[in-house]
Design a protein around this nucleic acid. Structure first.
Length: 427
RNA sequence: GGGGAGAUUCCAGAGCGGCCAAAUGGGACGGACUGUAAAUCCGUUGCGAGAGCUUCGAAGGUUCGAAUCCUUCUCUCCCCA
């Protein structure tokens, strides 16, 4: 199956420039996707682009991952309703390094002719003077053309306006494409659907400046069935960096995909074949409560992003936290395993002497551990039946707890509702 | 520069002298049902165990009593030049 067909049946394809597929089928092509260094880690939203590059490489083409050290200094107006704040250079460099390190894990950089390549557009922009840029690049593209882009038009119609800097963005990115086409023989740029305008400015520049031919392909925006934004939870984005989002939370994020979403996502985020996915769908339809699709999706991505060990721990943690385990079962875990399993769970500390003296449950969960922001809220939640200690429900706010609850003489597991776990450490 | 409208609890948005910790909707959180889905239903949503305390852009004032009236200030939006 060729690359475009692959993207099609996985429902990843949004737009494709005429001639792209033919060109790709003819020979091995080089193509690239740009990543904006707005943070020092990617989040799950970036995975669509990562998967696109992976498919591109698996189809025998040569993928380039561009990290925008230069474009990051300008700020992409696409999809933004207000002027962006510029990052300082130090942050930018850190972000570029962070993204590069993550990208390296997903692509094969040592597989002969179609090995992946990492580039940073700062390398060709750092020595490029403003005057040279407007002479060599700006001259080929009219302002009329640039103003017709959606990203620009929206801002001109809106109230916030747009700085010259952001207006220039599409030219800067367009030049990236030109540069890579000229010096690396890259024929195609890919990206999210919001990048179409920027990508086309690149193909246009290549055509007008050198009479060359280049192609564009964009991927669909990932949708969620309830209309909310993909990849965001109440507590923020789901990051790939384990320091920002623990592997356990990461695993849980995918495991919690709704039935509607998981059918799309498993196509996008795993490399499973059509037959395998359809098989899983049958399985899921027969026994939906087993959530075969969600489990497979979560397993596949968690392993690819965090590795097998982290995945196993996440599964183990999930089994313990959500399964029918009792405090006895918890007690039987040795401390190392226990800590490993609870690594991704929010932790708070309390002094053991206070606990020995006996402590009111409301005080424990609010003042002492900040699990609830106020005593009133803790009280309400306890009365409302949403509070558990060591998997045991507590409904009386006057309850007192002491050291007899401690697991391994040191830990208490508190729950707010069914899904939110907290580890209290006594020391 | 001239004229007008406005600023309310997470958001939107009522309230226009006591019955207002403030309607309603959304969001968020919890519960029930389930499958750690979805949909639905129920509850909670300033702090406090309570008495009570602190909130309605800011500061003053009128009043027994102010989110509501007056003064000044700050900011936002609209129209005209």
């Amino acid at each position: 199956m060729n690359f475009v067909e692959e993207m099609r049946w996985r429902n990843m394809l949004q737009d494709i420039m005429p001639g792209t597929e033919e060109t790709l089928n003819k020979e091995m092509c080089s193509g690239y996707i740009g990543f904006d260094p707005t943070a020092d880690s990617m989040h799950v939203g970036h995975l669509m682009q990562v998967m696109t590059l992976i498919h591109f490489q698996r189809a025998g083409h040569k993928p380039y991952a561009l990290v925008g050290g230069a474009t990051g200094m300008v700020g992409d107006p696409s999809g933004k309703s207000a002027e962006r704040n510029l990052l300082d250079e130090e942050t930018l460099n850190k972000n570029v390094a962070g993204l590069q390190a993550q990208l390296e894990k997903f692509l094969d950089f040592n597989t002969g002719d179609n090995s992946a390549v990492m580039v940073n557009n700062y390398d060709w922009f750092k020595g490029f003077s403003f005057l040279h840029f407007i002479r060599d690049v700006g001259k080929h593209i009219t302002v009329n053309y640039m103003m017709a882009k959606d990203s620009v038009k929206k801002r001109l119609e809106g109230e916030t306006g747009m700085s010259f800097t952001e207006f220039t963005y599409q030219l800067v990115q367009g030049y990236d494409f030109y540069y890579l086409w000229k010096h690396h023989g890259i024929k195609i740029q890919m990206g999210g659907s919001d990048q179409w305008g920027n990508i086309v400015t690149g193909t246009e520049l290549i055509r007008r400046k050198d009479g060359g031919e280049a192609f564009a392909l964009t991927t669909q925006l990932i949708k969620k069935s309830d209309g909310t934004k993909f990849g965001k939870t109440e507590s923020g984005a789901i990051w790939l960096d384990p320091k920002k989002t623990s592997p356990y939370k990461f695993y849980q994020f995918w495991l919690n995909a709704s039935d509607d979403d998981v059918k799309n996502w498993i196509r996008i985020f795993t490399l499973l074949s059509k037959t395998e996915i359809e098989g899983l769908e049958v399985e899921h339809a027969a026994a939906p409560h087993l959530r075969a699709l969600q489990k497979m999706l979560a397993k596949d991505i968690t392993i690819r992003v965090h590795g097998e060990t982290a995945y196993n721990t996440a599964v183990e943690a999930s089994t313990i936290l959500f399964g029918a385990s009792t405090s006895d079962a918890l007690n039987s875990l040795d401390e190392a395993t226990f800590l490993d399993v609870f690594e991704g769970v929010q932790q708070s500390k309390i002094s053991i002497s206070e606990l020995e003296a006996g402590i009111n449950i409301v005080e424990l969960l609010s003042d002492k551990t900040q699990i609830f922001p106020s005593r009133g809220e803790a009280r309400k939640m306890i009365v409302g039946g949403g509070t558990y200690l060591n998997k045991q429900k507590y409904t009386d706010p006057e309850s007192t707890v002491d050291e007899s609850l401690l697991i391994n003489g040191k830990y208490i597991i508190a729950q707010k509702g069914k899904k939110n776990h907290y580890l209290i450490i006594a020391e």
